[in-house]
């Protein structure tokens, strides 16, 4: 699975109370625990280890008021990531940007050289002089996620199924061919998919 935000990992919304964080942590610790019958046959040992780490990381941040506040601030923007119990939600549609944005070159969509990386996306964006905030405003994807995409912080990115949409929107905004750009970017993250 993809993991999304700490809130997603614990199946919570950012409005969750401290008590809900605690309850969710207890629940998912049990669900992914050594003795759990609910997940043992569903996940490979490596996946189980990974998800346990994620649950612990999420709890460590969200149960600490100061760390949580910092995390919330970092997430900024509208909550683009869906809650975990929604299997295939639709990503919010692109909206009209709040401010005028620099013009994207007209003409057919461009392709970046293979492989598409966070750095090459960032370079393409900077060449056009488009701030990340403008893309975030138009696509409703949180600035933080766009930064993660550019920084290749794959472990912090949401599930592939959502990430694909994010990268496509990002690419479209820069006048890049969305589908192939996203495919090339995702291939580095999950070469086996």
């Amino acid at each position: 699975m993809g993991y999304g935000t700490h809130y997603d990992v614990l199946g919570l919304t950012p409005a969750a109370t401290a008590e809900q964080v605690e309850q969710a942590y207890q629940f998912f610790s049990g669900m992914y625990g050594e003795e759990s019958v609910a997940t043992y046959s569903l996940l490979e040992p490596g996946e189980l280890r990974e998800v346990r780490t994620r649950v612990q990381q999420a709890y460590d941040v969200l149960c600490d008021a100061v760390k949580r506040q910092e995390y919330d601030a970092a997430l900024a923007a509208p909550p683009a990531a869906p809650v975990a119990e929604e299997p295939a939600p639709t990503r919010p549609a692109a909206a009209t940007p709040a401010r005028p944005v620099p013009a994207v070159p007209a003409g057919p969509p461009r392709l970046l050289p293979e492989p598409v990386t966070g750095a090459s996306l960032r370079k393409a964006r900077e060449e056009l002089g488009i701030p990340l905030q403008h893309i975030a405003g138009a696509t409703k994807i949180g600035v933080r996620f766009l930064e993660y995409i550019e920084a290749d912080r794959h472990r912090d990115l949401p599930a592939l199924v959502y990430l694909r949409g994010f990268v496509q929107e990002y690419a479209r905004f820069l006048g890049l061919e969305p589908r192939r750009t996203a495919e090339s970017y995702l291939r580095r993250i999950a070469p086996d998919q």
């Binding site: 629940f27 998912f28 669900m31 759990s36 609910a38 569903l42 975990a84 119990e85 929604e86």
Partner: peptide, 8 residues
């Protein structure tokens, strides 16, 4: 747990 596991 089964409901959550199936969704995720």
């Amino acid at each position: 747990q089964l409901v959550a596991a199936c969704a995720r």
